[in-house]
């Protein structure tokens, strides 16, 4: 369907040149955002986020894990993502493709760098720590899985209950209170088309873009960045997108409350 992408690209360029987007949004607006908390109570935490027609479910599970050799006193954070084939005619079955791995790693970096989870508090003994598993399940895809997954991951973490640990074993029927988080990480993704930037690109816009940049922030800091696609960005571009990310981050964080 490469040719169809080229046709989308032409249509996008023509529209952007007139300062408009196909769905009537302005350049720095999100599509409608919906957050359902704890839709999968079997998991210790979960959230379903819709961003326009993109729908992503994140589940959080705890397990007993082995500590990493270089961090013997810390718990283990592991983030996975699957582009579930029912989400898009362009997704395939089989092992995770590079897009899924990139998605998981970008979301992971935001959570990890922000230190929002105190992994030291997950220490049990020399052999055992708590592992926290964040799984991103993309269920319906219409562009920008980074921001939807970031939001769903944060909402799922905020809904998560710590399981009780006794004698190095997890007792799932008993809760040890909510998972403590020190700050809310949110991500903003921009598509670049010619010299314009569009926040929260739809799939059609992604097909027509030259490049993409994802910026994860806490209220004070930038905590992860990922540039993707062929296009290039200037230093000035990036600084202005960082400023917009902080401003938009406030909006996203208010949705998480």
């Amino acid at each position: 369907m490469e040719i169809l992408d080229e046709l989308s690209r032409d249509a996008l360029r023509r529209l952007i040149a007139t300062g408009r987007r196909a769905d009537g949004r302005d350049m720095y607006s999100y599509r409608d955002i919906g957050i359902q908390k704890n839709p999968v109570p079997n998991a210790e935490g979960s959230a379903l986020v819709s961003l326009g027609k993109t729908q992503i479910l994140v589940g959080v599970k705890f397990d007993i894990a082995k500590p990493f050799a270089d961090k013997p006193d810390e718990g283990v954070l592991s983030t996975g993502a699957e582009l579930v084939p029912l989400a898009s005619g362009t997704f395939e079955t089989g092992p995770p493709r590079e897009e899924a791995i990139e998605l998981a790693r970008v979301v992971d970096r935001g959570i990890r760098s922000s230190n929002t989870i105190d992994l030291k508090s997950f220490y049990i003994d020399k052999e055992k720590v708590l592992g926290i598993y964040v799984d991103i399940w993309v269920l319906d895809f219409d562009g920008n899985f980074f921001d939807a997954a970031g939001l769903a991951a944060m909402a799922a973490l905020k809904s998560a209950r710590m399981p009780k640990v006794e004698d190095g074993k997890i007792i799932r029927s008993e809760s040890a209170g909510k998972l403590k988080l020190t700050s809310d990480v949110v991500t903003c993704t921009f598509a670049k088309a010619d010299t314009s930037f569009l926040l929260d690109p739809s799939f059609d816009e992604e097909k027509g873009m030259d490049g993409r940049i994802t910026i994860a922030t806490t209220p004070e800091h930038v905590c992860a960045i990922q540039k993707g696609g062929w296009g290039a960005f200037t230093q000035k571009d990036i600084m202005s997108l960082v400023d917009i990310s902080f401003a938009k981050g406030k909006e996203l964080r208010s949705l998480l409350q």
Binding site: N42, A43, G59, V60, Y133, D135, R172
Partner: peptide, 18 residues
């Protein structure tokens, strides 16, 4: 048909993917 279980679907431990 492809039947697949999400790793977080069960009340017990985290499932393996694939």
């Amino acid at each position: 048909a492809r039947y697949n279980m999400a790793p977080f679907c069960s009340l017990e431990e985290h499932g393996r993917s694939g």
